[in-house]
Amino acid sequence: MVDFIKINWKYLLGAALLHLLFAGLFALTMVQMSRDAPPPQLAIQAVVVDASQIGAASRRQERERERERQRVQQEREKAAIEQKQLEEQRETARLESERQAEQERQAESQRRQEEEQKRATEQQMMIERQDAERKRQAEVEQQKKAEAERQKKAEAERQRVAEIERKQKEEAQRRKAAEDARVQNAREEELRRQLAEEEGLRQAESAGLNNQYAALIQEQIERNWNRPPSARAGLECEIRVAQSPNGVVLSAQVGRCNGDAAVKQSIEAAVMRASPLPLPPDRRLFQRNLILMFKPSD
């Protein structure tokens, strides 16, 4: 009851003040009606005016009573509405109080569950940490044993590798001495071969074989040349030719030439058609890159 008064004291105070106001209004109405009553008159005068005055007074009193009944009815209706609102407010306050109590109960239950879950989690974490620590210590011991074994094997391997390296070094020195001797012999042999080739090349050039080789190429190119109308007498064109070891022409380009563009193009085409070029009488005269002077007969 005390909690209800604390929660709804404003509404209770308003209802009390409203009842006091109604009581005051009723008292003022009664005082006003007593003032409006006609003053006492002589009996003879009453006989003359009583009829009209009594009728007017009766109608006035009737109107006052009707207004009073309406006012009282309005006040009752208003009081009933206020009472209903007050009861609704009480019911709302009760439901709100019950809702808050339920929320507090649920919050307390949730808090307890969370605390229990927290304790269970902490206990599980402690067990896991202890297991992890035991596992770590076991791993440390295992690592120490493995490291000792590894160092033992590493030392044995180091000694084995050192012995192998010593033997390899001795073998490498022996092989190097043999290779140096072989290289020296090869160099001497290559030098003798080069000297012999140079001597043979000089002999071949002295015999005119180089000119014979150039003439063979000139003749084959000229046979494959389609002389353009713009070619004039005294034509001289330098040709750079790249060929494979079997004489296949890889490229042909006319350099210095006293002919026009059509002449140069016709000469390059003739060189390509002349492929493969004839090989030299002496193989030592062969060159991959040739510079030829094309001088067709007029």
Results as ranks from 00 to 15, higher is better:
262 A>T: 10
87 E>G: 06
121 T>G: 02
87 E>V: 10
100 Q>M: 07
74 Q>I: 14
42 L>C: 08
117 Q>A: 08
277 L>W: 08
207 A>C: 10
152 K>N: 12
291 I>R: 01
280 P>K: 11
27 A>Y: 07
207 A>R: 11
51 A>P: 13
59 R>N: 06
237 C>K: 05
71 R>W: 02
277 L>F: 05
275 S>M: 14
75 E>S: 03
193 R>G: 05
3 D>F: 01
266 S>T: 15
292 L>M: 05
275 S>G: 13
215 A>V: 04
37 A>D: 10
271 V>C: 04
204 A>Y: 06
6 K>P: 00
286 F>R: 07
242 A>N: 11
23 A>T: 01
186 A>N: 10
53 Q>W: 01
218 Q>L: 04
60 R>A: 15
99 R>P: 01
249 V>Q: 02
49 V>L: 07
104 E>Y: 03
1 M>L: 05
8 N>F: 00
23 A>I: 04
174 R>M: 04
93 A>Q: 00
246 N>Q: 08
189 E>G: 02
170 E>R: 00
188 E>M: 09
158 R>Q: 06
253 Q>T: 14
109 S>P: 09
251 S>C: 12
247 G>H: 14
100 Q>F: 05
96 E>K: 10
293 M>N: 07
191 L>N: 08
298 D>V: 13
3 D>N: 06
118 K>T: 12
145 K>A: 11
80 A>M: 12
60 R>L: 15
257 C>V: 11
20 L>A: 07
172 A>C: 00
52 S>E: 05
202 R>S: 08
66 E>S: 10
156 A>E: 06
230 S>F: 05
